[in-house]
């Protein structure tokens, strides 16, 4: 059974009524890594928000099945607890809330949702330390308030660490490479690769091919005008790098 099955998905901005997604079809099997590439304004980020259940978008047509469940029927927090993780392009700051508290709260929400025992502070600390170590990250960030005063690289690393701790079934990486220098990019990619195992799927959304040098996708899709215009293997990414998005937008991107 496919992990994620998107059929003819149409979505609009609630306020303006403007249609952004105009019929997306996409199927992700367990363990697969898919990349969605596309020019700015193609609807890539909207797709990630609609999947994660952000307010402000209205699904007008189509369906999304996640692990056998109707994803669109679930609230945003329920989708997260079902195992859908969105790594944000711009992780938001939450002043005064220590990252550690936040993450423990998140993990315990998920455990409770799944009928598991919640972890106490000591158990949790041990788990986070292990995960941080496996990703070769320090846990110093966890002592600070969520994303407050983090550099761009730190924010993204924090997202990856959260991903490691929450162990989602599907990771949606929304422009994770934006704003990263090459060293930070490598650290993030290494983290993603370490988490890439059988059963965990990834949807990598990016404008540039460079992230795909580090995260090798099984499938690549080109998105423009709210639709997937072309799908192929990883060679498609290289092709795009060379030619740009002109074929799909009618102008050089």
């Amino acid at each position: 059974m496919a992990l994620l099955e998107i059929k003819n998905l149409h979505a609009s901005l609630e306020e303006e009524g403007k249609e952004i997604l105009k019929g997306i079809d996409l199927t992700i099997q367990p363990g697969e890594v898919h990349a969605i590439m596309g020019p700015n304004g193609s609807g890539k980020s909207t797709l990630s928000y609609v999947l994660a259940g952000r307010d402000g978008y209205e699904v007008t047509e189509g369906s999304v099945t996640f692990d056998g469940k109707d994803l669109l029927d679930l609230e945003a927090d329920e989708r997260a607890n079902e195992g859908l993780f969105l790594a944000f392009q711009y992780p938001v700051e939450i002043p005064g809330v220590p990252s550690m508290t936040f993450l423990r709260e998140a993990l315990n929400s998920k455990r409770k949702y799944n009928g598991q025992e919640e972890l106490d502070a000591m158990q949790f600390l041990k788990l986070v330390r292990e995960k941080a170590k496996s990703l070769e990250m320090g846990d110093d960030m966890l002592k600070r308030a969520v994303n407050v005063g983090f550099s761009g690289g730190e924010k993204k690393r924090n997202e990856i660490l959260q991903m490691a701790v929450l162990e989602p079934k599907l990771c949606v990486l929304d422009e994770t490479d934006s704003g990263l220098d090459i060293d930070a990019l490598k650290i993030v990619a290494d983290g993603v690769n370490a988490l890439r195992d059988q059963g965990r799927s990834m949807l990598v959304i990016t404008h540039y091919q460079r992230l795909l040098n580090y995260i090798q996708p099984d499938h690549v899709h080109v998105m423009a005008y709210g639709k997937i215009q072309k799908s192929g293997g990883k060679e498609l990414a290289l092709e795009l790098e060379e030619k740009g998005y002109a074929d799909f937008t009618g102008k050089a991107a």
Binding site: A76, D77, I94, K110
Partner: peptide, 10 residues
């Protein structure tokens, strides 16, 4: 939204 995406109820 960030909190919800990490599984927290409103």
């Amino acid at each position: 939204f960030y909190c919800a995406q990490r599984g927290l109820s409103e």
